[in-house]
Write a protein that binds this DNA or RNA. Sequence first.
DNA 1: GTCCATGCAAATGATTTGCAGTATC
DNA 2: GATACTGCAAATCATTTGCATGGAC
Lengths: 159, 159
Amino acid sequence: MKVDRESFKKLLKEKGLKMTRQRLVVLEVLAENPEQHLTAEEIYDRIKAANPDIGLATVYRTVQLLLELELIDRINLDDGFVRYEIGDMGGKHHHHRHHHLICLKCGKVSAFQEDMLEALESGVKEALGFQVTDHEVKLYGYCRDCSEKEKKQNQEEKI
Amino acid sequence: MKVDRESFKKLLKEKGLKMTRQRLVVLEVLAENPEQHLTAEEIYDRIKAANPDIGLATVYRTVQLLLELELIDRINLDDGFVRYEIGDMGGKHHHHRHHHLICLKCGKVSAFQEDMLEALESGVKEALGFQVTDHEVKLYGYCRDCSEKEKKQNQEEKI
DNA sequence: GTCCATGCAAATGATTTGCAGTATC
DNA sequence: GATACTGCAAATCATTTGCATGGAC
């Protein structure tokens, strides 16, 4: 994914903010690594090589800013780090995101698209009067690779 | 909800652990406050009145232990605290839990039961080969009270 | 030139850990 | 009586913040 410098600059200007090299670079790292769920420190590490004089605090501040601008999303995998990923950008409907599959064996995190939740949301609306505007769904289990490995191992044990 | 001292003791013994007043009290606080999503510090505060000489570190250690024993669940509302609530105990099917409605206006957190996710899980299994064993679902939006207040306010503005 | 933004280092705050004393089995 | 558990205080570690300098407009 490519960051459009000019529209980013414009977006910042609307809020009285300035476009800086650091802000652009952080956004670019996230845009170039979709589905990677990077921590602030990981973003920092990827930037440091080309920009040795950037500070970790700036990454933290920038990531907050990008969240407020709704350019990126936050993911919490309960491992002590907050992670970030580039948002839908295209923005089909009202930002519906945060669908993650987390493998309990290899730790791999993948995303999935699913509209089945809309039925759930309208059910909640009718039954409880709760109007859903966003959701975060994490499914824990075993990814294809790990569950196939498991299966193979079980077969070998039977022999 | 009431804690069964003896079966708790037995459960601990199976793992070579001892039953202590502190462990019992922490479990009781959580059992007596279902749907309350207490932080470690909040649990500590509720215990301190009757047991002034308990330590916060013990609450943290106990809560970890109860998680491992699958007697309680962990909830993360991204507000900087990890929260805990008593588990299903009854345990209908394979521990399926963590369904929360989080109101963006008043911050109220409520839980809901919903089996509609099973359709989603089998969809994921077929499409991606990912075998789901547990899930955590957070729906963000506006609770009945807040969305009614909102509606009323909008009507008044029109007058 | 005016502010906003940055880098650095120090501060924060939830959670963890080491250790000597204490309670459970 | 052995061993696990607790309380306390110190340590940890991700994230935030104060402040003087630097950069965008």
